[in-house]
């Protein structure tokens, strides 16, 4: 089984290929507007090396939490790719992807943080002995100081985002990556397959509320 993985949840636009459970390749570029402009050409580059679109069995996508715009670009592209040959779109939790990446170098309990906006971040503590569950991750959403209160630097902080805070010192900047998305999708294929529906949405997590919103007529 061949799976293309896409992660655009951060400003790292990353795609990867997993064939029969083995990571074959990853191509990633970091930068603004990278996902909206370069995602397709990265996938093209990825496939050209070893495989054709016809040989792909599923599209796996990092589902969130993360940048709303990034997540939507990734999922919309995945849906478009999958539509042509009615492939499943497998939603992989971004925290599980980041955990998988971090586990290559970190051999202890750790706290994963993905910045939302201002001083708010999504966070989860990963135990060394118990990898995150693929379909129910208890993710916290707090301001930096509360996150620090909770973990007190007991475990290393891992984050793809720039966290500017006096107390929280991320030990390493690691990004969720497309090859890990595809690899996790292969590992948990049946569970994720049941979540492949046309109206699939990103895991926005923090509920969007319309506050202090002033109407403005848009062009069109």
């Amino acid at each position: 089984m061949n799976i293309v993985g896409i992660d655009t949840s951060t400003n790292n636009c990353s795609v990867g290929l997993v064939c029969n459970g083995r990571i074959v390749d990853r191509i990633a570029r970091i930068g603004r507007s990278m996902a909206s402009e370069q995602l397709i050409s990265l996938i093209d580059e990825l496939l050209k090396k070893s495989i054709t679109m016809e040989e792909i069995d599923a599209i796996a996508v990092s589902i969130g939490p993360g940048s709303y715009t990034g997540l939507r670009i990734g999922l919309s592209t995945a849906k478009g790719l999958a539509f042509a040959r009615k492939l499943p779109v497998l939603p992989v939790p971004t925290m599980a992807v980041l955990e998988s990446v971090a586990r290559q170098t970190i051999d202890s309990d750790m706290v994963l943080m993905i910045k939302s906006h201002r001083d708010l971040a999504y966070h989860v503590c990963c135990r060394k002995e118990h990898p995150l569950s693929i379909d129910s991750i208890d993710i916290g959403y707090d301001i930096f100081s509360d996150i620090h209160q909770r973990y007190q630097n007991q475990h290393p902080y891992i984050s793809p985002s720039e966290i500017v805070d006096a107390d929280i010192k991320p030990v390493e900047t690691l990004y969720p990556e497309g090859d890990h998305v595809a690899w996790l999708a292969h590992q948990h294929y049946q569970v994720l397959l049941s979540q492949s529906v046309p109206d699939l949405e990103p895991l926005y997590l923090s509920e969007f509320e319309v506050k202090n919103w002033k109407p403005k007529t848009e062009s069109g």
């Binding site: 909206s36 995602l39 679109m53 715009t69 939507r72 670009i73 919309s76 592209t77 790719l81 042509a84």
Partner: peptide
């Protein structure tokens, strides 16, 4: 375009994926 950035990106990204996969 023109329009709302986030809204445009949903349609455009889908279309790009579809166009690529169908050549």
């Amino acid at each position: 375009g023109p329009g709302l950035m986030g809204a445009l990106l949903v349609g455009l990204s889908f279309a790009k994926g579809l166009a690529f996969a169908t050549e």
